[in-house]
Simulated assay, not measured.
Amino acid sequence: MADAVLGGSAEEVFAKELAEAGLRYEVDGEIATITLDRPEKRNAQTFATWSALARIGDNLPEQVRIVVLTGEGPSFSAGIDLRMFTPEGVPGQGSFSSAAQLENASFEDTVEQAQQGFLWLRRPEIVSIAAVHGHAIGAGFQLALACDLRIVADDVKFCMKEPALGLVPDLTGTKPLVDLVGTAKAIDICLTARVVEAQEAYRLGLAEQVVARGELARAVREKAEALLAVNRDAATATKRLLRGARERTLEEQCAAERVEQARRVAALFG
């Protein structure tokens, strides 16, 4: 039985709010699973999706070490709900048309709030795994990129669609994409809005593992078990080192290693 996320009726209210945003959320011991659950819309995302993801991050139980992102139905996520491009928008959430009427600073605040649903997946005390199958388009691609690891089914189709729609990717996806594949390849992927399928994704480093669609859940479970076998504090410190490595010089990274190791030795033998 999954552990309680919030107590009593508060838990039920939280689950109801997440369901309205198209998400399911379960915590089982040290593993939290977030499921995009609008299969009839191919798990298209809205402002409510991003707000709900941020709230999950804010309320993540301390014991959680692994966060799995997955999608119900034939796709991981087909991107932004197309109703957001219409004047009417998504009921109760508005549209890009209404957002365009905001002052620049206000609109940037709106984007910043949406980004919070993605940024917390990089925190050092957890390892996030995207279990990706079918379409991962635009916001779906960026949600996968927000995770530390991507295990993909052999039917996966990544695509950064925003430039083809006259927009830019703004849900924290541009940096990890460049970090993983390099600037030139990122330009190619984004500015052609082409589809990247499973084997190319693996070659480019967008996926750590490619499995048959029916083996995806098992592969993710095995990866989670392997990650949980490592000392938690050592894993957190190592992820912190690795996440910061690109921004540091070699000398700065060596200094950071010394600091982290001194902490670990003191904790283990002090």
Rank of each mutant, 00 (worst) to 15 (best):
Ala207Trp: 10
Ser128Trp: 00
Ala186His: 05
Asp3Trp: 09
Arg243Thr: 12
Ala54Gly: 04
Pro74Asn: 03
Gln261Pro: 04
Glu251Ile: 07
Arg243Ala: 15
Val152Pro: 08
Leu53Gln: 00
Glu222Val: 09
Val181Cys: 08
Glu251Pro: 08
Val265Trp: 09
Phe107Gly: 01
Ala146Lys: 00
Val68Lys: 03
Ala2Lys: 14
Ile34Gln: 02
Ile31Tyr: 05
Arg221Trp: 12
Thr172Asn: 11
Trp120Asn: 00
Lys223Asp: 11
Pro39Ser: 04
Leu228Thr: 03
Glu252Met: 11
Thr49Gln: 02
Ala226Thr: 11
Ile189Met: 14
Lys239Pro: 05
Arg221Leu: 13
Asn59Ala: 11
Ala19Asp: 15
Arg203Trp: 04
Asp233Tyr: 13
Ile189Lys: 03
Val210Thr: 12
Glu26Lys: 12
Gln63Val: 02
Lys175Ala: 14
Pro91Leu: 10
Leu119Cys: 01
Ala234Leu: 14
Thr172Gly: 02
Pro61Cys: 04
Phe107Arg: 05
Asp179Val: 07
Asp233Phe: 13
Cys159Glu: 11
Leu119Lys: 05
Thr86Asn: 02
Lys161Ala: 15
Asp28Tyr: 10
Ala153Thr: 07
Val259Ala: 15
Tyr25Trp: 13
Trp50Tyr: 10
Leu23Cys: 10
Arg122Val: 02
Gln253Cys: 10
Glu208Lys: 11
Leu204Glu: 04
Val67Pro: 03
Leu69Ile: 03
Ala78Cys: 13
Leu36Trp: 02
Ala164His: 09
Ser95Asp: 00
Leu121Val: 01
Asp148Trp: 08
Val230Gln: 12
Ala198Glu: 08
Gln101Pro: 02
Ile80Arg: 13
Leu69Lys: 00
Ser95Lys: 01
Ala4Cys: 06
Glu88Ala: 13
Asp233Cys: 06
Glu40Lys: 09
Ala198Trp: 05
Ala234Asp: 11
Gln113Asp: 07
Gln116Tyr: 00
Gly270Thr: 10
Ala219Cys: 11
Gly71Arg: 01
Leu171Asn: 05
Phe76Pro: 02
Ala201Ser: 12
Lys223Gly: 07
Gly57Met: 00
Gln253Ala: 14
Ala15Trp: 06
Val156Cys: 13
Arg42Trp: 14
Arg221Ser: 15
Glu200Pro: 01
Gln253Leu: 15
Gly140Asp: 01
Arg218Leu: 15
Leu36Lys: 01
Gly166Ala: 11
Ala234Ile: 13
Asp81Asn: 02
Arg218Phe: 14
Gln101Arg: 14
Val152Ala: 15
Leu165Thr: 08
Gly270Cys: 12
Gln113Ala: 10
Ala131His: 01
His135Cys: 12
Leu69Asp: 01
Gly94Phe: 00
Asp37Glu: 12
Gln93Glu: 13
Phe96Gln: 03
Val64Asn: 04
Cys159Lys: 11
Arg122Asn: 07
Leu227Asn: 06
Thr35Leu: 07
Gly73Ala: 02
Glu112Ala: 12
Ala234Lys: 13
Val211Gln: 11
Gly79Phe: 04
Ser51Ile: 03
